[in-house]
Structure formats: structure tokens, C-alpha cells
Design a protein around this nucleic acid. Structure first.
Length: 503
RNA sequence: GGCCCCGUCGUCCAGCGGUCAGGACACCGGCCUUUCAAGCCGGGAACACGGGUUCGAGUCCCGUCGGGGUCACCA
């Protein structure tokens, strides 16, 4: 057990919407740091060049800030171990890779993606271990270096023992053993010169003096590689503690996923949840205070938080209970004035009303029409008659396909403007031979809860991506079920119509 | 499928060898109440299964079953 000063971190990768799982990890790390008078670091793991975006990074930071989870060091506030963005630390990783190469702990691999793919396919077919076959491990290092210097594309892989087993330690699970034979020579430096998670993570955790790595259970299988890297560098590894994964409320309790549940923190904000309630609720996942009181602040949690008290069963993210908790905050911690403040912070403010006004104005006969006309802007769910969701001439299945295609396309979209949405719907109308008005009709119902409302695309822009996506998903669920086969086909169709990239 | 992790009410937790297995959400009843909420009172509801260890197992060990995770030049 380490006696070093407590330093923990959360290391999100900026590749999508701010996820409640990230907040969950952040909360437990922050509480642990606070409890032990340590530091909590936010590090951006943007080593995936294709998927990382600055917008996502901004959104993740903003979401955590909204939740009131504060970090001591990070890309925005700096700190003694800056930079805290991995894309700005490439020289450091390269240096460390060079060292492993020089010491014979790693080797250059020139295998093409095609070859690897083919190899994996063969292994799958023959049920062999599907890892890399280590073809390049035996290459002469000098020769490999020459080829690399000549510009031949390659990756660098770490050498992993070929027999015996790794003995690992997890704070909550104790000793874990894993055969080295089940682990392949992991790529640590990609062709583009970026490190993979495994390398960057270990190097940074060491350099940033991280004492405890508290992360999701999904990482447990790569722990041997990480521990091995510490060994190869001759570093003392931190204490590892793998937290259970948040689960869907479905039959299988699979890892929380947006197909089944809203996972974006932004959704919860837009749906009217209070940050203190969401944080409190996450604190109840796998942990509870000694006195059993379920309503508590971060400070109260941090005061008595112990990792040892975390339970290992994967907790189901039960929105019903979150709603109850949120209700308690609303009525116990707010008088009328404060409640109105909260409503204003949330959505009932001049800025939002002024955005909606131009859409509502042409449809108003009295000011009082405002209420029902714009109610859906200030709602989470909207009620609608499922039987009324139709497109003339289309079977229900075909209609569901359309909803599915739109849901997938909207998931892929990063930019959220009326014009962009307009373009998408027009394209879909064109591809399906439908008139735009026929195509959009069911979406009025699903998005606004009414057959006629303010203009769809502009309304969607104001409503924002999270609420729109959730409403379409819920509609799919209400109108479904959609078979897995049909869903796959819709996915294919979406790709045909829109391509893989979205603005 | 191989490997790894996990297994207490439908859900979230408590229990860390001896409890009538406790609390919370949800559900069902009742009270309060101009409605609905809220609040209060009450109810049904769980130790996955089978072997051990022990005077005694939800608690320790093994197996089975079930669930999850992971097997990428994604994290």
C-alpha cells in the first residue's frame, strides 16, 4: 500500500457527449481526494485523433462544472504537471517509447491493418487466441529502426511475457491472476505517432504522481499490461481500484448505454434535474453513508467516503429514484423565490423566451395561447397518441425504420442548427421519395407532442440535441418493438443516405 | 466462445459467523385533504442453487447457474 500523498485523476476522452459514467467516476475520485486531503486531477485523454474534438472537451468540462465537481489541476486551470491534455504531451510519450525500444521491452511492428484483420479472422475461425501473432517481435531491432527511419509506416508494441501469469491487486477485489498467454503485445504507439491509452495513461499517471487509479471495471482486463509497463519502466505502480459500471434498467443490465437510457449529463440538465440531486444520486450508486440518510451533499459524502465501502454489484441507474431525490431537493431546499430562480437558470428566462417568441408569434391569437403552444419546450417527456404516428402509404415497420434512421443520424450530428436539421430531413425525404411534409408529420407528434406546433427544425434547435434524441428514442420504444435485424438494416440505410460523417 | 469480475426484496443500499435479514425508491392499502402532489401510518416483496468449513452461515471455501466486462493502431 502506498503512503504517497493522495493524488487521483479522472481521464475522460473527449469523443462524445459528457457521460453520466464520467461524472460517476469523477465524483468518487473527487470524494476520495477530499476525504484524504489529496488532489484531484482532470486529464484529457485525446489520443484518438479521429474522434477527439475540442467541442466535446469543452462540453465535458462544462458538464462537470455544472455538477459542482471541482478539480485541482486540469487543462483549464493548469497545475504543476502541465500540460494536462495528452495531445500536448506527445514528445514525452515518444521519449518513453524510445526508452522501451532501447531496452528491448518494445519493438516496431510493420504488419499492415489488412494482415492483422486477416489474422484475426483466421484465429476467430479456428477459435485460437485472437491476439497479435507477434510476427514482428523477432525482427532485428537495428533493421527495424532502419526501415522506420526510411519512412516505412509502423507501430510500436510492448513485449508481454508469453507464459506464466500476472498477479494483480485491486483494492476492492484483492488479488487477481491472469495468464499472460491471454494477453497480446499491445500497441503502445500508433502509426500516426500518437500513443495508445495504455502507454499514455501509465506514463502520465506516473509523471503526475497519481497514487490511486480509481476507474471503471471495464479496465480490469488491461490491468496486466499497465502493471507490466510500470515494471518495464521501473516505476512503483499506484493502487488500483476498479469501480462497478453503471447499468441499464433492462433485463440484461448491460453497461449504461444511450440506446436504452439517456446517458448525457446535458440531457439531465435539460430535463430539469438539479446538479446537486444528480451528484447525490450518483453517490448512492455502490456507496451509502453510515447513517443511511440518502440525501447528502458532496461535502457530506467526502467527509466519510471510503473506497472500502463501495459495493461491487453493478448498480442500475434508476431514473425513478433520481426523480424522487430531485423532488426532495426541490421542495426541501427551495422556497418560492429560490425555486423561481432555479426555473430561470434552467430555461424559463428571457433569452429562451425570446428565441421561442418568433416561432410562436404568428400562431398566437391571444397571449394565453402561449401556454399550450410552447409547453413542450419546457418539458422532458411529451405525451402523444401512438396510433396517430403514421405516414400515409407506409406500414408501421417502415415508419419505425424512418424514426430509427433519424435517431441514428441525429446521434451522429455534432452541429445542431435548424438549417442542418432541415438539410437532413430533406435528404431523407429525397432518398425515400416522401414529401417533406409527410416525413416530418410524425416527428411533430414525437418531438412536440402535438400534430401541429411551431416549426419543427427551429423548435428542435431550441430544444437541443439531448431532448430531441430522447424523445425519438422513447417514441421508438412506445411504438416498437423493432427487431435487431430491422435496426441493423436501418443503420445500413442511414449510412447509405447520409454517409458516416456528420457535420 | 476464451479469459476476468460480480451475485441480499422489481431497483438502490445496510449486513462484514449468532439480527424476527434493516432502510430507501417503486408498488398496494389507509389517514390527512376542495383535486393532485407532498406528508404520516401500514402491507406484500430478497440472501441464485448445490456441496462443504463451523456448535452456528447472507456473511468463509469449492462447484453449478446467472449476469456483466473484455478480447482494436477506441478509450
Amino acid at each position: 500500500m502506498s503512503t504517497r500523498p493522495v493524488r487521483v485523476r479522472i481521464a475522460p476522452s473527449p469523443t462524445g457527449d459528457p457521460h453520466v459514467g464520467t461524472a460517476y467516476q469523477a465524483l468518487f475520485n473527487a470524494a476520495f481526494a477530499r476525504r484524504h486531503g489529496g488532489k484531484f486531477v482532470l486529464r484529457i485523454e485525446d489520443t484518438d485523433r479521429a474522434r477527439s474534438t475540442p467541442e466535446s472537451e469543452r462540453a465535458i468540462l462544462a458538464a462537470l462544472r455544472w455538477l459542482g465537481i471541482a478539480w485541482d489541476e486540469g487543462p483549464d486551470v493548469g497545475g504543476p504537471f502541465a500540460p494536462y491534455r495528452q495531445s500536448e504531451r506527445l514528445a514525452i510519450y515518444r521519449e518513453h517509447v524510445e526508452r522501451l525500444l532501447a531496452e528491448g521491452h518494445a519493438y516496431r511492428c510493420f504488419c499492415s491493418r489488412e494482415r492483422l484483420e486477416q489474422m484475426r479472422a483466421e484465429h476467430r475461425a479456428s477459435k485460437d487466441f485472437p491476439g497479435y501473432d507477434r510476427r514482428c517481435r523477432g525482427l532485428d531491432p537495428a533493421e527495424a529502426a532502419r526501415r522506420a527511419n526510411a519512412g516505412e509506416p509502423h507501430v510500436v508494441r510492448m513485449k508481454v511475457p508469453t507464459d506464466g501469469h500476472a498477479v494483480l491487486s485491486d483494492l476492492l477485489r484483492g488479488e487477481i491472476r491472469k495468464d499472460w498467454a491471454s494477453i497480446d503485445d499491445q500497441v503502445i504507439l500508433k502509426t500516426d505517432g500518437f500513443p495508445t491509452y495504455h502507454l499514455a495513461n501509465v506514463v502520465d499517471d506516473h509523471l503526475m504522481r497519481i497514487s490511486h487509479v480509481i476507474r471503471g471495471e471495464e479496465w480490469i482486463n488491461s490491468l496486466p499490461k499497465h502493471v507490466r509497463l510500470y515494471e518495464m519502466f521501473g516505476w512503483e505502480p499506484p493502487v488500483f481500484c476498479h469501480l462497478p459500471l453503471l447499468r441499464n434498467a433492462d433485463r440484461n443490465r448491460s453497461k449504461l448505454s444511450k440506446r436504452r437510457n439517456p446517458t448525457s449529463i446535458e440531457y439531465y440538465r435539460r430535463a430539469g434535474f438539479l446538479p446537486e440531486a444528480l451528484v447525490n444520486f450518483l453517490g448512492l450508486m455502490g456507496w451509502s453513508p453510515a447513517d443511511g440518510e440518502e440525501k447528502f451533499t458532496f461535502e457530506q459524502m467526502a467527509r466519510e467516503f471510503e473506497l472500502e465501502r463501495v459495493s461491487l454489484g453493478g448498480p442500475v441507474f434508476d431514473v425513478e429514484k433520481l426523480r424522487w431525490l430531485n423532488g426532495r431537493y426541490l421542495r426541501e431546499d427551495h422556497d418560492a423565490k429560490r425555486l423561481v430562480d432555479r426555473l430561470e437558470e434552467w430555461a424559463l428566462n428571457r433569452e429562451t423566451l425570446e428565441r421561442i417568441a418568433p416561432l410562436a408569434q404568428p400562431r398566437l391569437q391571444t397571449l394565453a395561447d402561449w401556454g399550450y403552444l410552447t409547453a413542450f419546450f419546457f418539458a422532458d417527456d411529451v405525451p402523444f397518441d401512438p396510433d396517430a404516428v403514421t405516414i400515409k402509404g407506409l406500414e408501421r415497420d417502415e415508419l419505425l425504420d424512418l424514426l430509427q434512421i433519424v435517431a441514428l443520424r441525429l446521434d451522429a450530428r455534432r452541429e445542431w442548427t435548424a438549417d442542418g436539421l432541415d438539410a437532413d430531413f430533406r435528404r431523407l425525404a429525397g432518398a425515400t421519395g416522401l414529401k417533406l411534409r409527410d416525413l416530418t408529420r410524425p416527428f411533430y407528434l414525437v418531438i412536440t407532442g402535438r400534430p401541429a406546433a411551431t416549426p419543427l427544425f427551429q423548435s428542435m434547435e431550441i430544444l437541443g440535441p439531448d431532448l430531441c434524441r430522447v424523445r425519438i428514442r422513447r417514441a421508438l420504444e412506445r411504438l416498437g418493438p423493432v427487431s435487431a435485424k430491422r435496426r441493423k438494416a436501418a443503420e445500413q440505410r442511414m449510412l447509405e443516405i447520409f454517409g458516416a460523417d456528420a457535420p
